[in-house]
C-alpha cells in the first residue's frame, strides 16, 4: 500500500473549474500528477453514467467540479 498511487478522474466545467486549473498552472501551484482531466461544457453535462464508467475503468476517485 505504501507506494500505491490513486488514479483520479476529474470532470471539470469548462467555465469555472477547468479555468481554475488553468490558473493553478499560471500560478505554478504544484500538485501530484495523479489527475486526468475530462473537460465538460458544464457540470450539468455530468451524468452518473460517466462516474460509473470511470470507476469501471479503474479510477479510484472521481472528482466533479463546477
Amino acid at each position: 500500500m505504501a507506494d500505491w498511487e490513486p488514479k483520479i478522474v476529474a470532470f471539470l466545467c469548462n467555465w469555472c473549474s477547468y479555468g481554475a486549473a488553468d490558473l493553478a498552472g499560471v500560478s505554478r501551484m504544484q500538485y501530484p500528477a495523479n489527475i486526468r482531466v475530462v473537460r465538460i461544457p458544464c457540470t450539468g453535462r455530468m451524468s452518473p453514467k460517466f462516474a460509473l464508467a470511470a470507476f469501471r475503468k479503474g479510477a479510484d476517485a472521481v472528482w466533479v467540479s463546477g
Binding site: P48, K49, L52, A53
Partner: peptide
C-alpha cells in the same frame, strides 16, 4: 454503458443507474 454479462460491475451499474 453496461456490459451484457452478469459481471458484478455491470450488475451494480445497472442497479445504481436504475435507482438514479
Amino acid at each position: 454503458w453496461v456490459g451484457k454479462s452478469v459481471d458484478k460491475t455491470d450488475t451494480r451499474t445497472f442497479h445504481f443507474l436504475r435507482a438514479y
